[in-house]
């Protein structure tokens, strides 16, 4: 006696629907990524590509000059990231909390106004702020002068000690709309019943935000942190637009992206070195990969989620 086992139908539609995304993503992201990794294991000797194993990485981290540039760029990159985490995200959350207040009027206007810089080109933001802060033509010195604080003005973008922080804050100004929007959406999705229940228990105002809303939006904050991390360690455009590829003054604003660009494509008399450039790109990839893994396995799995 044969029992016809109920065969699962082949669910070919899954493959069909996935195919376009997988193909496009593979062609424009995965293949170049592996191409870069491959390039970083080679070096041009006498006009031919020679496999050198990890030599490029050894040079990058071992040679005193390369490693000084690398650690400088990495350190600057962490500072750039810290500024975003410490300034952009708290302000984003604050703005979202204010916007979600039902008594606030002209919410749509504020929301749009704060979000608009995000869609501006880096070049516009970079040149715009360079003009605003220009000691010669800028409005910043005259505005400070008008309120009697001219002495506070300095050519920030030209000073080693301020330039990177200034650029970080410019970037914060540009992108604060993104955490604001994400948190705003998360806040709106909190059901009214929960808030009403909290009110019945006497939790209102600030304590309602800290005790009820904040725990509920923690997963969104996690996502924002990781987006900030990935975005900052891939950053390049703003620094390039504002300070050029040499990331002056004295490499004070050099981050991994500009370091990679200078190395890979060359600059002025310096001829590009795609192999060393790929080594830097690979390390950037590893740093981002590690950061994302720490978040995924260390933090996200421990976040408590609430089902409504």
């Amino acid at each position: 006696m044969t029992v016809s086992s109920p065969r699962m139908p082949v669910r070919w539609h899954i493959g069909v629907f996935l195919a376009p995304a997988v193909l496009v993503y593979t062609a424009i992201m995965v293949l170049p990524l592996f191409g870069t990794l491959q390039l970083s294991f080679f070096r041009v000797v006498d006009g031919r590509d020679v496999f050198v194993g990890l030599d490029n990485f050894r040079t990058l981290l071992g040679d005193p000059r390369w490693s000084a540039s690398f650690w400088n760029a990495l350190g600057n990159n962490f500072w750039f990231f810290l500024i975003h985490m410490a300034v952009q995200n708290p302000i984003g959350i604050l703005l979202a909390a204010l916007l979600s207040n039902p008594r606030l009027r002209m919410r749509a206007f504020y929301r749009t106004a704060i979000f608009v810089p995000t869609i501006l080109s880096f070049v516009i933001v970079g040149f715009g702020w360079k003009l605003i802060l220009s000691p010669i033509w800028g409005v910043a010195p005259s505005i400070l002068d008008a309120v009697g604080l001219k002495s506070l003005f300095a050519p920030w973008l030209g000073k080693e000690e301020y330039a990177l922080t200034t650029l970080g804050l410019i970037s914060v100004w540009q992108f604060v709309g993104i955490p604001m929007m994400l948190i705003y959406a998360a806040l709106l999705s909190i059901p009214d019943e929960i808030l009403e229940a909290a009110e019945c228990d006497g939790i209102t105002g600030m304590s309602q935000f800290w005790k009820i809303k904040l725990p509920l939006i923690l997963p969104s904050i996690g996502i924002i942190s990781i987006l900030t991390f990935v975005g900052n360690f891939n950053a390049f455009d703003l620094i390039y637009a504002a300070q050029g590829a040499l990331a002056g003054p004295n490499y004070a604003t050099d981050i991994l992206g500009t370091f990679l660009y200078r190395t890979f494509f060359g600059f002025q008399l310096q001829i590009g070195d795609p192999n060393m450039g790929s080594a830097i790109a690979s390390i950037m990839f590893l740093i981002i990969l590690m950061g994302v893994c720490i978040y995924l396995f260390g933090i996200q799995t421990r976040l408590r989620r609430y089902q409504f």
């Binding site: 000059r65 390369w66 030209g158 040499l246 002056g248 003054p249 002025q268 008399l269 310096q270 070195d273």
Partner: peptide, 29 residues
């Protein structure tokens, strides 16, 4: 002075000269 032969290697003498000249004028080196 930096254009012929001397900027063939790493670090690149021309780029370093940019940096050094700017540093010296700013007084940071």
């Amino acid at each position: 002075s930096t254009y012929q032969i001397l900027s063939r290697g790493t670090p690149n003498l021309e780029n370093e000269t940019w940096n050094a000249s700017a540093n010296v004028i700013r007084g940071s080196e």
